[in-house]
Simulated assay, not measured.
Amino acid sequence: MPNQSADTLLQSFRNKVTRNIVWAGAITQLLLAGVQVWLVHYIQAAVLLAAAIVLAVIAYWYRSKRIPDVWRVIFMMLLTSICFASIRTNGAIGVYWAYPLLVASFFMFRDGFAIALASVVTIVMSAAALLYMPVSDGWRITASLLVILVLGSVFVVMLGRMQKLLHQLVVTDTLTGLQNRHRLNNVLSQLIHNFRRYHRPASLIMLDLDHFKLLNDKHGHLFGDQMLKQLAARLKATLRINDQLFRVGGEEFLVVMPETELEEAVKVAEKLRLAIANTPFDGKDAQAHLTISIGVAQLRAEQTWAEWINTADTALLEAKRKGRNQVCKAESYTPTA
């Protein structure tokens, strides 16, 4: 669990909520089938039992992965049809199932699709109430369903915005505004997939600010933070449009370069080094001349993303060992997939 990215954890939570709702639907239909048997309504019991089996199969089959949208739609259509039939047969008693069904629709899908689905459920249930119940009762039920629809829609919109905000906070470094380690797993895994399936090269640049501790000791940590922010901005301005920049440590940064072979990555790394070394940085109370040490590694056959990062980090350590303010590339590259 700790090694999973924020994206993976969030999607896993959503999948779990959806599965639990489907399981709850299956159990509810099974209980209702039992009640219908007790009331000697065997046809209704058979329909409810069949629905319970379908829902249980869906929940079990997709117990460890995402339930496809088509099965979610089938789930909602099935329950809506049963609820409609219940209102037609039982009148006011059947209406009670419309409310949890409407609420569940907000959890089965996200954003606009959830609102659209809830609107369809509201229309169908309102139509059933107006068709098979006294008009005065039907309008009251319609009004109450509309209130739930409006409140639920507001909840879905606000929840969606909150999730996006929380996700942004999780995957973003607060000091520099760059992506952090939480996104790195997914990004590197995708590049490895592209390399193994389509033979698309990719390279990493691992860089570290030289003598950052001495800078903090001399000018203070606030000054050091200013330097890191300026460093991130200068690196980002120098990189190509498809390159991705991550802050992976205190003064350590990682550049992910898709569709890039080793020699090309070395050229970009040298541009980064010169962009930092050739122009001083202006702090609030002082000016600083900074340099960076850089390690470059191209993805090798059968490497995991952790091994790939370690290769770039080894090249970075070599650059530091040789005196800093220079670029070192990982040797013994094997291009075959």
Score class of each variant (00 low, 15 high):
3 N>R: 11
6 A>R: 01
7 D>Q: 09
9 L>R: 14
10 L>F: 14
16 K>M: 15
16 K>S: 13
19 R>F: 09
20 N>T: 15
22 V>F: 06
25 G>K: 06
25 G>N: 04
26 A>M: 03
30 L>A: 08
31 L>Y: 02
33 A>T: 07
35 V>N: 03
36 Q>V: 06
37 V>K: 14
39 L>I: 09
40 V>M: 07
43 I>M: 08
48 L>T: 10
53 I>C: 05
57 V>H: 13
60 Y>W: 15
61 W>P: 07
66 R>M: 13
67 I>G: 10
68 P>V: 10
69 D>W: 06
71 W>Y: 08
80 T>V: 05
85 A>P: 01
85 A>Q: 10
87 I>R: 03
87 I>F: 09
90 N>R: 05
90 N>V: 09
91 G>D: 02
93 I>A: 15
97 W>P: 10
97 W>I: 07
98 A>I: 00
98 A>C: 01
99 Y>I: 06
102 L>H: 01
104 A>Q: 07
106 F>H: 10
106 F>M: 09
108 M>K: 10
110 R>A: 12
117 L>C: 09
120 V>W: 04
123 I>V: 11
125 M>Y: 07
126 S>M: 12
128 A>N: 03
135 V>Y: 04
135 V>L: 11
136 S>Y: 08
146 L>M: 13
146 L>A: 05
147 V>F: 06
150 V>E: 04
151 L>G: 11
153 S>R: 14
153 S>Y: 04
154 V>D: 09
156 V>R: 13
160 G>L: 12
162 M>R: 14
162 M>G: 02
166 L>A: 14
167 H>L: 11
168 Q>I: 15
170 V>R: 07
171 V>S: 01
175 L>A: 06
175 L>S: 08
177 G>K: 08
177 G>Y: 00
181 R>H: 03
186 N>P: 15
186 N>G: 10
190 Q>S: 05
190 Q>H: 01
196 R>L: 05
197 R>V: 12
205 I>V: 10
207 L>E: 05
208 D>N: 13
208 D>V: 15
209 L>M: 10
213 K>R: 11
213 K>S: 01
214 L>V: 12
216 N>L: 01
217 D>H: 06
217 D>K: 06
219 H>M: 02
220 G>Y: 04
221 H>I: 01
223 F>I: 14
227 M>I: 11
230 Q>I: 13
232 A>R: 05
237 A>L: 10
238 T>Q: 00
245 L>H: 02
246 F>L: 07
246 F>M: 06
247 R>A: 08
248 V>A: 06
249 G>T: 06
256 V>K: 00
259 E>H: 00
272 L>T: 01
274 L>K: 03
276 I>Y: 00
284 K>L: 11
286 A>W: 13
287 Q>G: 15
288 A>W: 11
290 L>R: 02
291 T>P: 00
292 I>A: 04
293 S>D: 00
298 Q>T: 03
300 R>K: 11
303 Q>R: 13
307 E>S: 04
310 N>I: 14
314 T>A: 07
316 L>I: 03
317 L>I: 15
317 L>E: 04
319 A>E: 01
319 A>T: 03
322 K>S: 11
323 G>D: 01
328 C>Y: 11
332 S>R: 15
334 T>G: 14
